[in-house]
Design a protein around this nucleic acid. Structure first.
Lengths: 335, 335
DNA sequence: ATGAAAGCGCTAACAC
DNA sequence: GTGTTAGCGCTTTCAT
């Protein structure tokens, strides 16, 4: 590979001039610029990342910490990962991916080796150990999620509380009194995800506001087990006329159980929830809100990029508001 | 951050000695080694990735090219990405992730900037442009997939032809004559994925061997559309007694259609396919083969690591053999 | 067994 | 507007 020295020699200028032509950080006469650019093309030169990193103490790479806990919906996780990568490239950044345990343990390592300029933290939990590590390292980072009382980091998320309120509100408005929430905090390891609490908060508050009665059905990533849970609930709570799912994963077993019980949607019962896309892979589409993963990841990367530009920025929180999306799974209950 | 110079000074040795203590590339007296290691601990020193990269022309980072085409099953894609990352860490490598268009266009960029040591290529297609780019760059790479006639790269994949043969064989053995293949090559953009052709090959060959009659039903990532396709097929081909799905994504709409038609599995019809895990998220588990994503990604990263050690290695192909997994969705057809 | 010094490729402060 | 040069942090050859 050609180096900046090769370019300089062939163009008959100094290496710094080549550097300045590329960065534009100081004026270069147009003839020289022209000539240098030609040589760069000719030699197919592109600066070595390592050389640049060493000189600037900057890598143009961000780390993406994505635990991808088993319990979370894999299709959702993938969209977030993909969204971050796409957004990062738009900012001229590459993405170093850490998953599983590494997502939790690599902060120190990456910081100490100066391998990345900043972090995007996915699946943030309350009292997340990564927050401590990041704080200690005093390194640019943005959290996707809203751990309580953490106001020294940039945070981005969907306003899950508002989602809960909205969904219950819609159901109450349609006349539903007895609502089943599929996927309770007790359901799995994702109970510590910040969004779960906020969503449940919104749901509780909505029920309080509208005088709805709530019952819960556990959901897991086991189709059959979840189906059984819901069938059990249908037996024990025949008064339930509506279901709310926190995400699409629970939709397939829910429809499966409803089907088996001979209940049709929305004639007999209504189903609302958060889905990933307008098109559904694993069940019929449900009314409710679309997860704005593109907006979330875009905002996260933008916040991080701004912070890299100006580290003194004070922390900001972006709370995206949900929009209701009608897919025909909501109607008024029969009497 | 401390540098190697700080360590050297504090330990009263030269920088090279510190370097050699870390690398073990030349003997160091145990007293000196001891002392140096203490200081390293004390200063919490860890070598700068950039400095090391510049000196060694090595980054300890591999690029993961994961197009994540819309059509592919996202949960499958995620497992592959995760698998590669985990395996890479075991080899002491970090992973730079490129998705979408970037997965196709970043090869030159990453190679020229010397940002990575090698590539893992996911979702390989026949006549994949990345193969050309990689060949031109003459850079270490391993393909997950088996493009025909490409024998100058390491390749790893499940033996999809054998999968097709096995599934049809199982069905034929149970007495099924009329089999529906859900998700044909015509179904989507994934028609160029190398595994699709090989799977279909195996299925065709199996049908030929056992004298089975095949019909095809298109599957897409639209639940409702796929459901309709299958319902249509059930009407037009009442003789069909068994279904084969290429992956779980098609299972949910298939069961949905079967349900609606009042057909139960395996009493009325049998269902076989490739699933991701023993536990199913979106439908009841199906008999067939489990996608050995962990073995595939592990082998891919191992091959790459070996090639990084010794670039002169001649290209190898690893074809993992499928194992049959019984989940109770296969039985003999009624007469 | 250890040290001195060159060099990896780049940027930027300092000349002019 | 351009060139010279020091230096980023590390590895490794050459001396001793």
């Amino acid at each position: 590979m050609a180096t900046i020295g090769d370019v300089a020699k062939l163009a008959g200028v100094s290496r710094s001039t080549v550097s300045y032509v590329m960065s534009g950080k100081r004026p270069v006469s147009s003839e020289v610029r022209q000539r240098v650019q030609e040589v760069i093309k000719e030699l197919d030169f592109s600066p070595s990342a390592a050389g640049r990193a060493l000189a600037t103490a900057t890598t143009d790479t961000i780390a993406l910490l994505a635990p991808m806990v088993d319990n979370a919906a894999p299709e959702v996780a993938l969209q977030f990962v993909n969204g971050v990568v796409q957004a990062a490239r738009r900012q001229g950044q590459d993405v170093l991916l850490a998953t599983g345990d590494e997502a939790f343990h690599s902060v120190e390592r990456l910081v100490k080796a100066n391998q990345v300029d900043g972090f995007v933290v996915l699946d943030v939990e309350e009292r997340d150990p990564r927050i401590q590590a990041l704080r200690k390292a005093n390194f640019p980072a943005v959290l996707v999620g809203m751990p309580e009382g953490v106001n020294d980091f940039d945070r981005v998320d969907l306003d899950w509380r508002e989602v809960g309120l909205m969904l219950i509100g819609k159901l109450a408005q349609a006349g539903h009194q007895h609502i089943c929430l599929v996927g309770t905090p007790a359901a799995g390891q994702d109970m510590d995800m910040t969004y779960v609490n906020r969503f449940n908060d919104g749901v509780q508050r909505g029920a309080q506001l509208h005088g709805s009665t709530l019952v819960a059905a556990d959901a897991s990533n086991d189709f059959l087990a979840t189906t059984r849970k819901i069938e059990e609930l249908l037996r024990n709570h025949p008064e339930v006329t509506a279901f709310v799912v926190r995400h699409e994963v629970a939709a397939a077993p829910l429809f499966n159980a409803l089907n088996a019980a001979g209940l049709s949607v929305p004639t007999d019962v209504s189903v609302l929830g958060v889905s990933l896309d307008t098109m559904s892979l694993h069940s019929r589409p449900i009314s409710g809100v679309l997860n704005p993963f593109r907006e979330i990841t875009g905002a996260a990367v933008d916040l991080l990029a701004q912070r890299l530009e100006d580290p003194s920025l004070r922390p900001r929180t972006v709370l995206l508001q949900p929009e209701y999306d009608d897919r025909g799974t909501l109607s008024s209950p029969k009497h």
